[in-house]
Simulated assay, not measured.
Amino acid sequence: MNDQTMSAPLLHPSAPSPASDGGTLKMTARNVNVFYGAKQAIRDVSIDVTQENVTAFIGPSGCGKSTFLRTLNRMNDTVSSARVEGRITLDGEDIYAPDMDVVQLRARVGMVFQKPNPFPKSIYENVAYGPRIHGLASARADMDQIVEKSLRRAGLWDEVKDRLNDSGTALSGGQQQRLCIARAIAVDPEVILMDEPCSALDPIATAKIEELIHELRGRYAIVIVTHNMQQAARVSQRTAFFHLGTLVEYGDTSEIFTNPRETRTKDYITGRYG
């Protein structure tokens, strides 16, 4: 990866089209299969992600929900044995096309991981890192504004504004996760992927992250993987249930939890397995 690629300006294609459920279609997946060597982890998954809704992926451990999430910004490219088949689009553009700039893609489709992973840098530099490599700020004042805006959106500014030069790793777990969210949104993404962002956090920190998800809804298309069905019910408007690498059911969260169409979904929701 050369410096010229790293500093290329971010490109935002034309506006997305309407989705079948009335929302604004942001990403689509059609007939997606994922393999790790000879083992198939995802089988023929098709799904739409809309701008207005938080979409939750639920299902038992090992069902493929995190693997599928990682296909949405090509994180599986980092696994040498991984192979993805099918078509995934962002604003109608095939993200697996040979000419897709993966650096830009991951700026447009940001990722927040299960365990908070701040860089061993200052709070300020954690947030400034992405905008700096993408050339989004031409002056220090511009960068200051981006850092403050991102920390405010992540609900962290008031807690850290007087110690921006302190290490990001010195923050509490919940603060570190919000710092990682601030880092993700600092490059002005269009989609935020969250892979079990609260699993390592205490209930108070979890509540803050869930409140933040509510506040960010609509500004970004958000997809969250969670093992916590109550969390999925609280934060999402659309829910996808995965089982054994297949997408069993996808629809309005209220319908999935109160009137699922599929027996496997009902059995999982009611705790018969999982």
Rank of each mutant, 00 (worst) to 15 (best):
R74C: 11
S236M: 08
G86K: 00
S167I: 07
V127H: 00
L212A: 09
F35K: 08
G22T: 08
A19R: 06
E196A: 07
A141M: 11
C198N: 15
H243Y: 10
P120F: 00
R106H: 07
R108H: 06
A139D: 12
R43V: 13
L151S: 05
A186H: 04
D91M: 04
P131M: 02
R219G: 15
T270D: 10
T55N: 02
L179C: 12
Q40S: 02
F35A: 07
T24H: 03
V49N: 05
R217D: 10
R132N: 14
A128K: 00
I123K: 01
A182H: 01
S81L: 11
L179F: 06
E93H: 09
V49L: 15
C198R: 11
S14Y: 01
I58W: 12
G174N: 13
S17E: 14
D166K: 12
P260G: 02
K161N: 13
V112E: 04
N259C: 03
Y129S: 10
A139P: 01
C180M: 06
V191N: 09
N259F: 00
P60C: 03
K266Q: 14
P98F: 01
T206Y: 01
T258A: 07
D91P: 03
L193E: 04
K65Q: 05
N31S: 15
Q4A: 09
V248M: 07
P98N: 05
Y129P: 00
S138D: 14
E210Q: 13
S80T: 11
N31Q: 15
D99T: 07
E210Y: 08
H243S: 05
R43A: 13
S138P: 00
V32H: 03
N73E: 13
I209V: 15
L201C: 10
S17A: 10
F257R: 11
Y273I: 12
T28D: 13
D101Y: 03
T226N: 06
R74F: 11
H227V: 02
M100C: 14
M1E: 09
A221C: 13
N53D: 15
P18N: 08
S46F: 06
A141R: 15
I256P: 04
P197W: 04
V187D: 04
F57Q: 05
D195M: 10
T270A: 02
M6L: 15
L136T: 08
D142H: 06
G37Q: 06
A186Q: 04
A82T: 03
Y124A: 06
E215D: 15
D48C: 07
T258L: 06
A240P: 07
R163G: 12
A154K: 02
T258M: 07
R272W: 04
F242G: 00
V112N: 04
V34F: 03
L11D: 12
D188S: 15
S46K: 08
V34P: 00
D44W: 05
K161E: 13
M229K: 12
M100E: 14
Y268F: 13
R140C: 07
R132A: 13
A29T: 09
